[in-house]
Structure formats: C-alpha cells, structure tokens
Write a protein that binds this DNA or RNA. Structure first.
Length: 600
RNA sequence: GCGGGUGUAGUUCAAUGGUAGAACACGAGCUUCCCAAGCUUGAUACGUCAGUUCGAUUCUGAUCACCCGCUCCA
C-alpha cells in the first residue's frame, strides 16, 4: 500500500510555500521549535476552518441522524482503562544493542541457554572499549558463537580487529527475555513507552491525580452515548460526531505535519442495530454486493451495508472538496492488521509525495467500545428497541433456545480465538464466562435491549489539510512580457476550501476613482466571503500572488467600470479565474451572486 | 529511542578564523490601461549553549530542530 519516494523535493517545495504564504509554521519556532508540533498561520487557519466546517456540515447539519458533541480533552482516567489505551499505549520497549532492532519487551520469546558477559574489548591502533555486553548462546552451542557476536558489537563501536575481554565462563540462564532471539545479543533495559500524554489534575500531583490528554476523540462519544441518546429523541441507527484535538506522544513525528503529537480528529460513531436485531425485525439482513444501492439507508441493513455506505459517503465528501479518485486509494485491512474487536476496517489513503498514506479509517467495531464501558462503569449502555421487542415477543421456546445456542457457540469461539492469540487453550473459567455472557446477551435481547454496534469513520483534519495542500500544489512555467520564462506556483484549491475566496484590485493605484470603487466592491463582498484587497504593484503581480495563495477569483476595477469605455460597460468589473486566467465581465450588482454560485 | 544527513535574511543559495553577499520575496515612493515590467529606496540572517582563540558564523563539543532510513503507529 505504501510506495515510498526516495527523496521528496516536492515536499520541501510545499513546506517552504506553506511557510512563505503563512499556512504552516513550526510551533515555538523562535525558541528553536518543538518536535511534532505545528502551528497554522493566517492562511492555514482559514483552510483548516473551511475543512472543519465542511465536514461538520456534511456529517451533521445536512443529516437527520447524526448529532454533534464537544467533549473535554481531559476525561476520567477510567475511560482509558476501559478503552484499552492505558494497557496498550504503555508498552515496555527494548532495543537490540547490536542491530538496534526494537522489541516489545514483554513480547520477546522466552529463551534459555548460556550467557557470556564481556567487559570490553581492545583492538589495533590503540582502539578499545570498556562497554559491557552480553550474549546468550542456546544450549549446545559453543562459546565461540558468543565471541563472534561480541566482536561484531565492539567493532561496530570503533574497536579495530577487536579482541574481546571477559566472558570466559558462561552462566546458565532460563526463560529470559533479555536477549535478541535472532542473534543472542543483549537487549537494553525495557523502557516504558506511553503514547498518552500524562498530566495531573488538582494541586497535589500524586499518582492518584494522574490524568491523560485524550489520544483520540472517539471515547468521549462512547462515554456520552447514553446522555445523547436520552436527550435527543434519536433511535438506533443514529450517530454522534465530534471534532477536536487529540494527543499522542509519537516516537517519531515525521513527514511534516502528517504525524504530529498534537492533532485534530474528526470522528463519527454511527450506532447501528446488531445484525441479530435486524434479522429479527426485518426477517433477514441485506447482503452486500458490488451492485448494491448505497445511496439511501434501508431498515434491513446490517453492519456490512452500513460500513460500505459510510465508505461511499466519505468518498463523496472527498470528491466534493476536490480530492477525487485520482489521488485517493483504499486499503481493506484483513486478518492480522485488523484489531481484535474490529470486523472490518478500510483506510482511505491519499497519494502524498512521501507515499500513499492514511487519511481516514472507517472501522466496523462491533459492540466492543460500549460493552467495555458498560463492563467498567457498571451502567448499561443499551438501547431499548420497541420494534425488536415486538418482533421477539412472538418467538416460542424452541426458537429462543436455538438463538441462545447460536449465541453461545459464537461467544465460546471468540474466547477460544482470544486464547489462541496468546498461544494457549481457553480455560474452563473463560469458557464458562463466555457462556454466561451469551445467556445474558440473549436474555437482554429477548426484552428488546442491546448494546448498539458501531461504524466509525475517523479522519485526521491536519492530514486532510496537508492532503488538500499537496493536491492543490502546481507549478507551471510561463513566459513573461519580455519572454523570460518564469516558474509560477499555483495552489489549485477547490473554491470551497480556498482560504481566500476573492482578491479585489483597482487596476491602477494612482487613480483615486479606481481605488474608491475598488474599496466599495471590497466592502460589499467582505461580509459574505473572505476577501483580500491589494493595490500595490502591477496587476499581473497581484494576480500571481493570489494564485500562489490559492485564491480562486480576482476582481479588477478598471476604466470600463468607470464608464470610460462606453456607458454599456459602466459598473462592470473584470473577474479573473485562477486556474485558466479566463476573464469575465460581470455587473457589480450581480457580482455577489456570480461569486457565491461558484463558491458553493 | 537508534543510525545517517542538514542548520546563514521570508524563501532558495553564496562566501569567510577579523565589516556576511546575491536572487527572488517583502515595505515605502514614482511609474504602469490586465498576468511576477521599470526606476528610487528601505528593513531583515549565521538555530541555541558552551569550549578553544586576542578574536568563532567558520574549529571542537553538547543541545535543539528539520530531512532520510530503522523502530513505533486502533
């Protein structure tokens, strides 16, 4: 899926343009910067705001079935315990001292054998090292193989033709994770690697006061699911969306703003009926096929149709802001990529200059998240479905027993699969717990209650802004009036996302009538759209400046406007299009409508 | 976190152990009837901190940041 480009001078051009034109600055630049943090300048702030507003409009304002939420960044730490972030975001990591390869310290295979500990090495030309190093040799292998690895280690550190010191006697060790299974070289001490930013709430700053900056916005939606459900008169299926900052202490922020430590997410959790409920109410669940109509949701849609629907919706959104099929790609996660709770996940990828990388993930997460919170907080996170209750009330004992049996088999299989992943068999307790869960699940189901399943389109706003910038970036060579070829840079933003919509220029600035008229037009347009007034330099230069800023239209007040070229042209202006230089004469009275039509 | 590379005006690049220069961009003025024209003029830089030195942007070290590769990445 990823196709790395060797060097990316294009990316450098884009980042220097972003700085030059006030799109993106390094955070805290005057103090030398801070890795993984970026600021948006005046143009970038407008661009981002446009993208944010367009997403919000498409996701909630234009829909009946999605509501907005604006939750805090710091939440109860138990949320991150329930979501799994506390455990999986704080992996201890260890590096191989020889190859620098990194391991999850708790995932290194257990090994036994003889450990040889070396105290250093001396070599030719007075080179030496006093760094301690150890090698594990599997049972039966000679000491020489340890010496070989150690020699390599010391020679890497500049000891020429190293003679290894110490390690005459091996020491028997069992079940250690301290050595690289591939070459026996010693690993560094495990270091905790918590990707969540930690802080303290309240004045005492003890371990009891630890809180985290959210590493994703999604959990707030799950945590407020019940409140939204209870106060909004919505029925499943419906969604809750949110835009906001999230924080991850990334090991390596890279590719400009693509992987940052502070970033903005736009997430939707769309809650749907479990397939069992759809089947009970509608008789069957719609099957997805290539020819399926995804335009209007239907009652008999199960998770798969909903998942496909959201992929189509999101694709249409990208299309609407100028990111078409030519710059997008899709990656359907399978098997091992897929998180254990996910049923399916599609990444929508954008062809960045540095490779094709994820813009948005659309996951079918089952009922994992709400179930986790239900378990941890002890409060039901269920939806009571009248239709389901009515549908199952007619079921006889045999049908119910059959349902419970199917559910039980499913829960048992899940428990076994989880155990298999940890390379062991499921215990009797685990299987009994699975059966109990299946019975409870079924019992709730027969009363019309279930924990909704969820489809999660999760997009990165900063990534989207970067993608839009990359897609818009365009250089063309053009000869000027003297025939000198000059390279012009144009940001071909879709008018919807362009930070500045229109530039207003008097043709000449030393003609007060032109300037006065231009100020008038500017004042007229300013309340309706972001405009920019410019009277300095030649008109061509002003056009070029706006091209580089991605402004789609330029309005020039000229002598025709003043009626000097005949009364029929009085009070008309020249409107110039950024992408092809085409000029139109538009009456000032019709200018607002003309522009708004093209910006919509 | 590891390995390699790079840090000089806003940008792209020079030069230099002793006063740092250009192009473009930017500001002001003049000029200019449609695509970076011209003239005058102005402001702006050695990432940071140490060390060596009479003197460091230059040499050394550390640090910070960026880029590439690993690693990581719900």
């Amino acid at each position: 899926m990823s196709q790395p480009v060797k060097e990316s001078p294009l990316m450098e051009k884009i980042s220097s343009l972003c700085k030059r034109r006030g799109f993106i600055f390094q955070s805290s630049e005057i103090y030398g910067g801070i890795a993984g943090f970026w600021d948006y300048g005046p143009m970038g702030a407008e661009l981002k705001r446009n993208l944010r507003d367009l997403w919000w409009r498409a996701m909630t304002r234009e829909r009946e079935d999605v509501l907005g939420l604006d939750a805090t960044i710091i939440m109860h730490p138990a949320i991150w315990k329930a979501s799994g972030h506390v455990d999986t975001f704080s992996d201890p990591m260890a590096d191989c001292l020889l190859t620098q390869k990194r391991f999850r310290a708790d995932h290194v295979d257990l090994q036994s054998g003889m450990v040889f500990r070396f105290t250093g090495a001396s070599g030719d030309e007075g080179t030496a090292s006093a760094v301690a190093f150890a090698v594990l040799v599997p049972p039966g292998k000679p000491r020489e193989s340890a010496l070989k690895v150690a020699k390599q280690f010391y020679e890497q550190r500049g000891v020429k033709n190293a003679v290894v010191l110490g390690g005459e006697q091996g020491e028997k060790v069992e079940n250690t994770r301290g050595f690289n299974p591939e070459n026996g070289a010693q690993l560094t001490e495990p270091r905790p690697f918590n990707l969540m930013f930690k802080t303290y709430v309240g004045p005492t700053a003890t371990e009891a006061d630890v809180a985290y900056l959210r590493p994703e916005t999604a959990q707030a939606i799950f945590a407020q699911f019940k409140n939204v459900l209870d106060t909004s008169r919505q029925k499943v299926p419906f969604g809750i969306c949110q835009i906001g900052k999230a924080f991850r202490n990334e090991v390596t922020p890279k590719n400009y703003t693509f992987r940052s430590r502070e970033f903005e997410q736009m997430e939707l959790e769309f809650f749907i009926k479990p397939d069992e409920a759809v089947a009970a109410v509608c008789g069957s669940v719609a099957e997805w096929s290539e020819s399926a109509d995804l335009s209007v949701p239907a009652d008999n849609w199960g998770w798969e149709m909903w998942h496909r629907y959201w992929v189509a919706q999101r694709t249409a959104f990208y299309q609407s802001i100028g990111l078409g099929a030519d710059v997008l790609d899709y990656y359907w996660q399978t098997g091992d990529d897929l998180a254990h709770y996910a049923r399916a996940c599609v990444d929508i990828l954008f062809k960045f200059p540095f490779g094709t990388e994820e813009l948005e993930g659309i996951a079918a997460r089952g009922d994992f998240d709400l179930t986790q919170h239900q378990t941890h907080c002890g409060k039901p996170q269920e939806f009571f479905d009248e239709e389901l209750k009515a549908a199952v009330s007619g079921w006889d004992e045999a049908k119910r027993a059959e349902f419970v049996a199917v559910k039980t088999a499913e829960f048992r299989a899940k428990a076994e699969a989880a155990a298999a992943k940890a390379k062991r068999a499921a215990t009797a307790e685990e299987l009994a717990a699975a059966v109990a869960r299946a019975e409870h699940w079924s019992a709730r189901f027969f009363t019309g209650n279930y924990v909704p399943h969820v489809i999660e389109p999760s997009a990165g706003l900063d990534r989207l802004a970067l993608a839009v910038l990359c897609a818009a970036f365009c250089e063309e060579d053009k000869a000027d009036v003297n025939g000198k070829v000059e390279r012009r840079t144009v940001l071909r933003f879709h008018p919807r996302v362009a930070p500045v919509k229109v530039g207003v220029f008097p043709l000449l600035k030393n003609r007060p009538e032109l300037v006065a008229k231009a100020r008038e037009v500017y004042a007229m347009l300013k309340p309706l759209m972001n405009c920019f007034y410019d009277e300095t330099a030649a008109i061509g230069r002003r056009y070029a400046r706006q091209d580089e800023a991605g402004t789609p239209f330029g309005v020039t007040i000229d002598f025709e406007t003043l009626g000097e070229k005949g009364p029929e042209l009085a009070d008309t202006v020249t409107v110039r299009e950024r992408d092809n230089g085409a000029q139109h004469r538009v009456k000032i009275a019709e200018l607002k409508g003309w522009l708004l039509e093209r910006l919509a």
